[in-house]
């Protein structure tokens, strides 16, 4: 009940904030469209809802994290950046900001967000790409479900884990470093955990995308993966391990571009994106963990879970640790 009230209040607050500026909406409409480059997936319904609500056509291009900087910088330097709005992990947007790709815009729709979500130079955090332990609830006994991350090092999980390649998958690398800095008491304990995990011989895949399938089919039992799959892959028998420690993830950020072909549509889009309407869709339909107060993905117990952002890591750190993990996990 309390949750519901909060949700209602929040949505009332932000939708009023969204509808505030009529002249912006008019100008945006005149521009006709807003182009959105994003690494987040499955957001087509939000694009449609945006078009329906504003009369401005929302166009979405999915660009994977690995190609994001290369693509945007190439276009930007050639004066052909088509994106009005960009969305990517925070470190990516930071990099773009340093190159002058982004414009400083603080959306009125972000007013209700916590202070730490407002970053320098118009970058707004709106979600956390949260990582958790996803298991097959038909094949794993309730008693066996890990209660702490360390439980993954238990030999009973040998040959039963799937995870993204810790030598190359940036989000997984960041997550492991996040564990070191936020969860484990000492680096030694953390290294023991890594060794135990490596000894369980997890199966490596290229990214998070292929992690749930082996768990669903029973090829593996548990995945270091994203809880959002519990929503998107329903009715697959997936559940998340409620570990005592917090969940960690890379912050998802959004910003408008400095030479946006449709600057007003860009603002309107960010306003809409950060509104409770869009964030509710993101949480409800895609299972994303959003930073809009009071909105949670409809995953059991997620509203009470602690979800922390991992600090920003530089590429040098990620590459250095990638090499380190390559040794620990013996990827040849």
């Amino acid at each position: 009940m309390k949750k519901f009230l909060l949700l209602l209040m929040a949505s009332l607050l932000s939708s009023s904030a969204f509808a505030q500026d009529a002249s912006l909406a008019e100008q945006a409409k005149a521009e006709g469209r807003a182009t959105f480059y994003a690494n987040i997936t499955a957001i087509e319904p939000i694009m449609e809802a945006f078009s329906a609500a504003t009369g401005v056509k929302g166009e979405y291009t999915r660009i994977s994290t690995a190609k994001f900087v290369a693509t945007v910088l190439t276009e930007f330097e050639a004066g052909k950046l088509m994106a009005d709005v960009v969305q990517a992990p925070l470190p990516v947007l930071e990099m773009l900001r340093e190159r002058g790709v982004l414009a400083d815009y603080s959306s009125p729709a972000a007013a209700g967000y916590e202070e730490w979500t407002r970053k320098q130079g118009g970058i707004q955090l709106f979600g956390i790409e949260y990582v958790g332990l996803i298991y097959n609830k038909e094949l794993v006994q309730a008693a066996d479900v890990p209660k702490r991350y360390e439980d993954l090092a238990d030999p009973k999980w040998k040959d039963k884990i799937v995870m993204a390649n810790p030598a190359s998958h940036a989000t997984t690398i960041s997550w492991l470093i996040g564990l070191k800095e936020n969860v484990f008491a000492s680096e030694d304990e953390w290294r023991d955990f890594l060794k135990g995990l490596a000894a369980n011989n997890p199966m490596f895949v290229a990214s998070f995308g292929p992690t749930p399938a082996p768990v669903e089919s029973g090829e593996k039992l548990i995945a270091i993966s994203m809880p959002k799959y519990i929503i998107t892959k329903a009715p697959a028998p997936l559940d998340w391990a409620r570990v005592e420690q917090p969940l960690l993830g890379t912050p998802r950020a959004i910003a408008i571009t400095s030479k946006a072909p449709h600057p007003n549509a860009a603002r309107l889009f960010v306003d809409y994106w950060l509104s409770s309407e869009a964030m509710t869709m993101l949480a409800r339909d895609v299972g994303e963990y959003v930073l809009h107060p009071g909105i949670f993905p409809p995953i059991e117990d997620m509203d009470t879970a602690r979800v922390l952002p991992i600090r920003e890591l530089t590429d040098e750190e990620i590459q250095k640790w990638g090499e380190e993990f390559q040794k620990i996990f013996k990827v040849s």
Partner: peptide, 18 residues
């Protein structure tokens, strides 16, 4: 865990954000 040039190159361009 069999790495060939193609996956090696992939690793090079996927490790990190830039």
């Amino acid at each position: 865990r069999v790495q060939v040039l193609a996956t090696h190159i992939y690793q090079m361009i996927s490790t990190g954000f830039a």
